[in-house]
Design a protein around this nucleic acid. Structure first.
Lengths: 242, 242
DNA sequence: GAGTGGTCTAGACCACAGC
DNA sequence: CTGTGGTCTAGACCACTCT
């Protein structure tokens, strides 16, 4: 097929876009298998190789997971392997154990300047704020404030957070249909104020990691803004540069 | 071809290994073009598609860079785009400008326990230690200590560091034939001691990012261990979670 | 126009999982 | 045994770069 280039987009990219639509619309749900490559080739009227290339990219983006002999599955935050992708905190010594989340508070508010900018919503639009602590063997390691667009997460309350076993992104995925796909973190070192020091059980003015995150769903739409303060006395933030 | 599985390795993986050998041996040098896909297909006696798949992976690993219409090139730290891969420090406001490196000191020593473990060398093996400062518009932002295996970097001295324009990994690559391929960083928050505070021009006990890095060359061999202290008053460490 | 990487196809066959 | 993803091939054609 000829293309006359300024708007050239390879077939497999177009297929990829169609598949993202199927994911976003909920036609294919987290944890479930999508149709086989053969079926998709028929559905989209292209060869299997072209479908494969589209799936390859979606798998590289962590939207899909391939399992030889079994099928291709929609990635899910319910999968424990997804956990470490978004919280790379590791004990200085000892095993990597998932931290236990304890919600402290959850309330409604109106978006200020910062929340509005980071979440891409109107000033004074409704937002939900969560405060929580993450503990390692009952020792507080992280204190978090999470800002969510009220429109998308309406109905969220502290009881839901308390009852939920598993990662908070798992909750967002299964209760609100919001899938966090990637995030950008800005990391700095700050001094603990009195309040935080008390919550984390460290001396006032102790150095803490400040981790500010914006997380995005389909179409690079920001849907979460959070700021965490990490006590790194007995943990470190692990990052792979590759 | 039949394979009877326990030792199964796809052809393109074998080709990939051969290509890594060509890179490691210096047959193909940083910045230069490697042979075309057609030539490689002939050389390795496989189809172009198989060569492509091998190259695809090497490009994904940042060992090669494809340029449509021009060829496939060996990635180089001389390429300014490679810079940000290993130093993700961004000003809170303003443009991303490469930091300027000022070596403070460079001396020989024997590996202690930590250096020996991190560099995978014998206790008391010769090492080289570099102390330096990175500045942003003549303001010190980072103070670094870099530990290198003396055997590989023999001949390195502070004059070389002073004369070199560009990233230190560019120096390692072009003068010592050592190519840093990936790294692992452990990030914590610490308080500035008197010495460091003076060097960075911040109050004593100020919170700083402590970034400890081990960098690896071919075959996941560790060849650099460093610890940096970052002043994050006006910069942050940017991390993409994907 | 010549050469390079990039796309797409159709078909054969292999490895893996589960029945 | 069947269905799934994974590998490999051979060939045609397109897009990009440089001469």
């Amino acid at each position: 097929m000829v293309n006359l280039s300024p708007t050239f987009s390879p077939l497999y990219q177009q297929i990829k876009r169609l598949m993202i639509q199927a994911l976003e619309s909920g036609e294919w749900r987290p944890g479930q298998a999508i149709p086989s490559e053969q079926e998709l080739a028929v559905r989209f009227q292209v060869s299997q190789g072209t479908v494969r290339k589209a799936i390859d990219e979606l798998a590289a983006d962590n939207l899909l997971i391939r399992r030889q002999g079994k099928g291709t599955f929609v990635a899910s935050h319910a999968d424990p392997r997804a956990l470490f992708r978004f919280l790379r905190l590791t004990p200085l010594s000892g095993e990597i154990v998932p931290l236990k989340s304890e919600p402290l508070d959850c309330w409604r508010a109106k978006a200020g300047q910062e929340a509005s900018r980071n979440l891409g919503i109107e000033l004074s639009a409704p937002i939900i704020i969560i405060r929580r602590v993450l503990k390692h063997e009952s020792k507080p390691i992280v204190v978090d404030e999470i800002y969510l667009p009220g429109e998308i997460f309406s109905g969220l309350n502290i009881e839901m957070l308390r009852d939920w076993q598993g990662s908070i992104y798992g909750l967002f995925e299964s209760r609100f249909g919001v899938r966090m796909l990637h995030a950008r973190e800005k990391i700095r070192a700050v001094a603990a104020d009195r309040n935080v020091a008390e919550t984390l059980g460290v001396p006032e003015a102790s150095p803490l990691l400040s981790v500010e995150r914006v997380a995005y769903t389909y179409g690079d739409k920001p849907v979460e803004w959070r700021r965490g303060l990490y006590s790194t006395a007995e943990h470190y933030y692990l990052n792979e540069l590759s």
